[in-house]
């Protein structure tokens, strides 16, 4: 974990409720795809955890959905303003388990952390399949980004207005070596029921600190108690206890 001040380079809408923000500065704390940052916003007590969409040498890009007062405030911030950010939080994805044909499954606001993962896997020469699920055509984002990486990319929409009608589980390929999934819990449960291989899920929980101090985001797993912010947010398929 590092605490750092980052400068907003751009903060623009991608869809009606999804924005993309690019931050520059010392991002050396951001180590692995699947990690998240925790952002301090003026007037709000708790920081807001957001996953990392992509990482460059001196910049990170986040894609976030405006869901409440915190993300709305973030959406109002302008280029040139600075943010106090805790970086390099969470465990991140395990790239060593990907195999030759990893499958990436993202649902809505769960799509962003899979992009950096896809880029690294492509750089390693893997054949990457991405299935991205949204509610409707107007909610779709990042489709072109995944295609440009050379991922075999399929988009599903619940109302059929773009790509395949249905959910990501309706477009899972026959063959893949391992999967990485991030999205709403019902989607991830459906993936868990359908998947034929080992894989991992990126989970979400309300957090106090985001770095393991408050025990606010603990969950039970087959391997004992884990903090989503510290031993997560990525958990292996075999250790998750979905019942709650």
């Amino acid at each position: 974990m590092e605490q750092t001040l980052l400068r907003i380079e751009e903060n623009r809408p991608l869809t009606r409720d999804i924005l993309k923000i690019r931050l520059t500065g010392d991002v050396s704390g951001v180590e692995r795809p699947g990690q998240f940052v925790n952002i301090k916003l003026e007037g709000l007590f708790l920081r807001r955890p957001i996953s990392v969409f992509d990482r460059e040498e001196d910049a990170i890009t986040l894609i976030y959905r405006t869901v409440g007062v915190g993300t709305r405030r973030l959406s109002e911030m302008k280029a040139g303003e600075t943010l106090d950010v805790l970086t390099g939080l969470g465990n991140g994805y395990d790239l060593t388990r990907a195999g030759d044909r990893p499958l990436l499954l993202g649902g809505g606001a769960g799509v962003p952390p899979l992009y950096w993962l896809a880029r690294v896997l492509r750089e390693q020469g893997k054949r990457v399949t991405a299935v991205l699920g949204f509610n409707s055509a107007e909610d779709v984002f990042a489709e072109e980004d995944f295609r440009k990486l050379g991922c075999e990319t399929t988009v599903t929409t619940a109302d059929g207005s773009h790509g395949i009608r249905g959910f990501v589980t309706d477009a899972m390929p026959e063959e893949y070596s391992y999967f990485y999934a991030c999205g709403p819990e019902p989607m991830m449960r459906a993936v868990d029921r359908r998947a034929k291989t080992e894989g991992e899920f990126s989970l979400e929980e309300r957090m106090g600190c985001g770095f393991g101090a408050c025990m606010g985001c603990s969950c039970r797993t087959r391997d004992g108690m884990k903090r989503i912010c510290r031993e997560g947010p990525v958990l292996r398929r075999g250790e998750i206890l979905w019942e709650k």
Binding site: F45, L46, R206, G208, M215, S218
Partner: peptide, 22 residues
């Protein structure tokens, strides 16, 4: 283990926790 989640809420100039002595 403590309480079920969500264990954390926010309020003006503060927070509310119900960790439950994990």
């Amino acid at each position: 283990f403590g309480n079920p989640t969500p264990r954390i809420a926010e309020c003006p100039a503060g927070m509310i926790n119900a960790v439950g002595l994990q």
